[in-house]
Design a protein around this nucleic acid. Structure first.
Lengths: 189, 189
DNA sequence: GTCAGTGATGGGACTTGGTCTCATCGACCC
DNA sequence: GGGTCGATGAGACCAAGTCCCATCACTGAC
């Protein structure tokens, strides 16, 4: 029997999500989160740089997107490469067994401005990484920036559908469809 | 002679920008800002909800954009309406006599993550307002979302040029050109 | 088996952002 | 002169976040 329960950061994240749902982000104290996880404030800040970050990926969404773009077929145009990247997200980060968790988490994020701020910045940094990855494929700068913006839009659309909808569609297919729709809407202009 | 110096919020904002440039955002205390403005912490928080907000518009960028879109000619397509809105920005918020200030402010924002976060959220909320304004013109939801994303991209491009460049181009014309370029790049897809 | 090293955790002092309540001060009005 | 009102100051208070040091259990060497 281990002296320490395993996966302290995981327990902290779970406790935080529970508490934020129960009484809201603002009304929850880091000390309370730590206590529910059987830990202390010191340990919380050892694993997370601040209170917001406990709700964000310990994983590597950026890497998934960047690799997805890099490993797209050489003939793929920028938006096709982005579609592949979103598909990669759908196979791991937005896999179907994470749908409920993702929905709970997003509801908490939407309810608090501080958290929306953090999310907004993460998305900007993500878009920057996508632009960089597209540029490495030889895509011109402006085209890459447009593709990244449209890709993020498709992500948003697909995510909402994936969370809301009660059919069996996975994130990947939804994102591909959303991206096709976005592409069509952009071409009309 | 007035008992109180006029424009307390303005003095606070100016003092803050100076101090942030001198010693960085993190190393500057709200108390120091207030002192330099001849005021106190209490008064600072009377005018600004938090330390970040002292660098953001007391004005109404949102209103400018929304009105710009609303008052575009009925025949204008979504991106033309957005162009009109950016032009409205260029006539007031990004007027040429504010170029130096805007540059200093942006440099401070770029240097600090907390501030970049705040800016990221402001832009998202701005985009949401643009989408709403476009929708009121009868623009379909998806088209409006695409137009808002492309409009924000043109804004970013034009802003950087406006700050960097040392020719006499104003923000408005730069934004129109940027939007035209973005539109062309989006149509290629 | 004991003893030193190591990594994860706890404890508590400290700074700062942010909230709140109450006191103060000057202008203006009657 | 006294009362009201709006802007400011003063200070207590809480929570986030930083820092340093103590503690504890496990590990391996001897």
């Amino acid at each position: 029997m281990a002296r320490w329960q395993p996966d302290a950061p995981g327990r902290l994240a779970a406790a935080a999500l529970d508490l934020f749902e129960e009484r809201g982000y603002d009304s929850t104290t880091v000390i309370e989160i730590a206590e529910r996880a059987g830990l202390t404030k010191s340990t919380f800040f050892r694993y997370f740089p601040d209170k917001r970050e406990v709700l964000f990926d310990r994983g590597t969404v950026t890497d998934l997107l960047v690799e997805g773009i890099a490993s797209a077929p050489p003939a793929a145009d920028p938006l096709d490469a982005v579609a592949d990247a979103l598909d990669a997200l759908g196979r791991t980060f937005f896999a179907d067994d994470r749908r409920e968790f993702s929905g709970r988490r997003q509801a908490v994020l939407n309810a608090n401005t501080e958290l929306r701020e953090r999310e907004a910045l993460k998305r900007i940094d993500l878009a920057a990484s996508m632009i960089e990855a597209l540029t490495r494929r030889g895509v011109p700068s402006l085209t890459a920036r447009v593709a990244a913006k449209l890709g993020m839009l498709a992500w948003e659309i697909a995510f909402d559908q994936w969370i809301d909808i009660h059919n069996g569609e996975g994130f990947g297919p939804l994102a591909r469809q959303a991206l096709a729709d976005v592409r069509a809407a952009a071409a009309v202009h």
